[in-house]
């Protein structure tokens, strides 16, 4: 059924910390690794070693340069580089689900995960048109739509050690920039994190009500503008010990002066 559930019991999703992400793409690699081997059709690559390499990914990391506006205290503010992982946001009002003509796309009542039943997918691509985030990609080899499953085959998997029962991207992130949990429960760790850091929706004007939240980068530290306000703890240690050269260096200095 491609009508959306009124409510979901839980709202499982990701919280992505744009302050912490270092743009290493480890989440991209681990996502591809896990999801090409497990749930559904493999994530194929086309011409991987040729002139036009391309492939299916469920998670991609963009990098943006943000140029702050000049102000009186900071006439030439430095641009900020922000790495930006993007995958399915498991929207509450997922437009990709309702457009599906076959019922292959659905949003689960129990945890809010948006999934594709690949045996029903005709590969019309309409769901990818409806998604503003580019979260869905058609697999060229299989002809079906692929998307983030929130690693549904990991998070409930009793065969895995407990610490591994999180999405592969979260498990692998070396910077701790990705968090997983129930965003429908205000007392969950992820909900508290979102409240504390001012988590935001992407493209809120599209009305998709994304479950995944992004934590904005914290303001950058600033070197104070006035020179006398500068604090340099190493300055006393770095002061020259001998102002006048002595010994061999002293002789060389004098000899070179005379030439």
């Amino acid at each position: 059924m491609t009508t959306l559930p009124e409510t979901t019991q839980r709202k499982m999703g990701l919280v992505i910390d744009l302050d912490t992400c270092v743009g290493c793409h480890a989440c991209v690699v681990s996502c591809k690794g896990w999801n090409t081997e497990n749930y559904g059709a493999p994530l194929s690559d086309q011409d991987p070693y040729g002139d036009d390499p391309r492939g299916t990914f469920l998670n991609r990391v963009h990098s943006y340069e943000v140029q702050p506006l000049a102000e009186s205290g900071m006439p030439h503010p430095a641009a900020q580089l922000i790495h930006f992982p993007k995958s399915c946001l498991h929207c509450e009002d997922a437009p990709c689900v309702t457009v599906c003509p076959t019922g292959a796309s659905y949003k689960r009542v129990e945890d809010g995960i948006v999934l594709v039943n690949e045996s029903d997918c005709i590969g019309c691509g309409l769901c990818a048109w409806a998604c503003p985030y580019g979260a869905r990609e058609m697999d060229e080899a299989e002809g079906v739509m692929k998307k983030c499953t929130l690693c549904v085959d990991r998070i409930y998997n009793d065969n895995l050690p407990e610490e591994d029962r999180v999405p592969a991207c979260v498990r692998t992130c070396p910077a701790g920039a990705r968090h997983f949990g129930d965003l429908g429960d205000p007392d969950s760790d992820v909900s508290k994190l979102v409240a504390e850091r001012g988590g935001m929706d992407l493209m809120p004007e599209q009305g998709t009500k994304p479950v995944n939240q992004y934590l904005p980068p914290r303001p950058k530290d600033r070197v104070m503008a006035a020179p006398d306000a500068q604090i340099d703890v190493l300055a006393p240690l770095l002061a020259p010990v001998a102002e006048e050269p002595k010994g061999f260096i002293g002789w060389l200095d004098k000899a070179l002066e005379k030439i």
Partner: peptide, 12 residues
């Protein structure tokens, strides 16, 4: 990107 309140966003 949600980054508009910091400044002008450009794809890097």
């Amino acid at each position: 990107t949600g980054l508009g309140n910091i400044g002008t966003v450009r794809a890097f």
